[in-house]
Simulated assay, not measured.
Amino acid sequence: MTTGRDDDALTWDGDDDPTLDHGAASDEGDGSETSAHSSPAELPKGFTAVGKGSETLGSADAPVAASVSKTPSHAPAATRDRQPMGNGALIAFGVLGGVYTLYAIGWLIGGLRLQGKAQYLVMDVMYQGSLWLAVLAPLLWFATTLLLTRSSRAWVRFAWLAAGVVLLLPWPFVMIGAIGQ
């Protein structure tokens, strides 16, 4: 039985390309791996490496010992501890986004149903302005909450979104409804 690359479960045309073999240099065992890790790649003067793997890059301005630290001290704590959102969180944001969209539609329908009754209380221009502010309020709350709580924990973001669900309930739609009573 052969143990070549042709026996792999998935082979594609071009898999034999030598530029795709990333581990070929370390397989030789000539010590090139240790020399590559002892001196990090160097950036030009004035440039600073940021992001994943930046701690392994050196700068022409900084000494080599400071550039090869295991945990960068200049990185904020939020970026080191930040985890990507899970599937449950993404689904919950989608459901809450749908609820806020339905609230905006509810404010529009309920506000348009009240338009004839509210002409006695305020002028038409004032009513139209307040109607569109009421329609945009749920969408603005959702977008603002997502924007301002980016670096917060997930429970803080969901708490603010839940508060918006309670506070922005479309009362004209709930009280009068789409049919009108």
Rank of each mutant, 00 (worst) to 15 (best):
Gly29Ala: 10
Val99Tyr: 01
Arg157Gln: 05
Leu43Gln: 01
Trp141Tyr: 06
Pro76Trp: 02
Leu20Gln: 06
Arg82Gly: 09
Leu139Lys: 10
Ala154Met: 04
Thr79Ile: 15
Val174Asp: 11
Val166Arg: 03
Gln119Ser: 14
Pro76Gly: 10
Ala89His: 07
Gly98Val: 01
Thr71His: 12
Phe93Met: 15
Arg82Ala: 15
Glu42Ile: 10
Pro40Asp: 11
Arg80Ser: 12
Ala60Gln: 15
Ala25Trp: 03
Val135His: 04
Gln128Tyr: 07
Asp7Arg: 10
Ile91Ala: 11
Ala41His: 11
Leu114Val: 00
Thr101Ala: 15
Asp8Ile: 02
Ala36Leu: 15
Asp30Ser: 08
Leu140Met: 02
Leu161Ser: 01
Asp15Phe: 11
Thr2Asn: 11
Val122His: 12
Thr34Leu: 09
Leu114Ala: 03
Ala77Thr: 10
Lys52Phe: 12
Arg82Asn: 02
Val125Ser: 10
Val166Asn: 02
Arg157Ala: 11
Lys117Ser: 08
Leu10Lys: 12
Lys52Ser: 11
His22Phe: 05
Gly86Asn: 03
Thr144Phe: 02
Glu28Met: 10
Gly111Thr: 08
Ser130Phe: 00
Ser39Glu: 11
Ala178Val: 06
Val122Trp: 05
Ser32Ile: 10
Ile109Gly: 06
Gln83His: 12
Pro76Gln: 14
Val64Asn: 02
Ser39Phe: 06
Tyr120Asp: 15
Asp13Phe: 13
Pro138Ser: 07
Leu90Gly: 14
His22Gly: 09
Ala62His: 13
Ala134Gln: 02
His74Ala: 12
Ala9Asn: 09
Ala143Leu: 11
Gly29Asp: 05
Ala78Lys: 04
Ile105Leu: 14
Gly177Val: 10
Ala65Gly: 01
Leu96Val: 05
Pro84Gly: 11
Gly4Asn: 13
Pro172Asn: 00
Gly4Ala: 04
Met123Trp: 06
Ala66Tyr: 08
Pro84Ser: 13
Asp61Val: 06
Gln83Leu: 09
Leu148Lys: 05
Thr11Asp: 09
Ala92Trp: 01
Asp6Glu: 11
Leu102Ser: 08
Asn87Val: 11
Val50Gln: 07
Ala9Asp: 09
Thr149Leu: 01
Ala62Asp: 14
Thr34Arg: 03
Asp17Phe: 12
Val165Gly: 02
Thr11Tyr: 06
Lys45Ala: 15
Leu148Gly: 01
His37Gly: 01
Pro172His: 03
Gly23Phe: 01
Thr56Glu: 04
Gly97Phe: 05
Gln83Gly: 03
Lys70Ile: 09
Thr149Cys: 02
Lys52Trp: 07
Asp30Gln: 14
Gln115Val: 04
Leu148Ser: 04
Arg113His: 14
